[in-house]
């Protein structure tokens, strides 16, 4: 009987341990395309970015150039979002960062909507890899 008790206790311990793993693995379940588990998220070396933009004669943005992207970012996608007053998004655009030797530059020339330069208060950047 003592042996049986030990065996049952062992079984509960094993069950509890795996149940803990299962619970951790299901924390981020939000939809059918779930996101959970471990992944190493590595920066490609960006500390900050600045952009210069060009406009047409009506003051609408026609192009944004982003310079000094580390070469390690080649192949990633850079997205710029134009942010207006009260943090409202005015539009966005993205492009793939091409291969380069030391530092890369990227030019975004297509945007989700017409963006009036006087309305832009800031640029928001994201560099996304896969």
């Amino acid at each position: 009987m003592r042996f049986l008790t030990k065996t049952i206790a062992f079984a509960f311990l094993v069950a509890a341990a795996f149940a803990g793993c299962a619970a951790a693995a299901t924390l981020a379940l939000a939809s059918s395309s779930l996101a959970a588990g471990n992944a190493t998220v590595s920066s490609c070396g960006i500390s900050s970015l600045t952009a210069t933009r060009r406009v047409d004669n009506s003051g609408n943005v026609t192009r944004v150039d982003v310079a000094n992207l580390p070469a390690a970012c080649a192949g990633e996608t850079i997205q710029i979002t134009f942010v207006g007053a009260a943090s409202v998004s005015l539009g966005s655009g993205s492009t793939s960062i091409g291969n380069c030797a030391v530092t890369c530059s990227a030019a975004v020339t297509s945007f989700s909507s017409t963006v009036s330069a006087p309305s832009v208060a800031s640029y928001s950047f994201s560099v996304v890899g896969s």
């Binding site: 149940a19 693995a25 299901t26 832009v120 800031s122 950047f125 890899g129």
Partner: peptide, 29 residues
């Protein structure tokens, strides 16, 4: 049964890790 069920849930949860944001920032004008 306990080991099998728990392990199955763990594998299912790690299937769709595919992309991630590397960096984000802003520039105020």
């Amino acid at each position: 049964a306990t080991i099998g069920a728990s392990t199955a849930v763990g594998f299912a949860a790690s299937l769709n890790v595919g992309s991630w944001h590397l960096w984000g920032g802003s520039q105020t004008l």
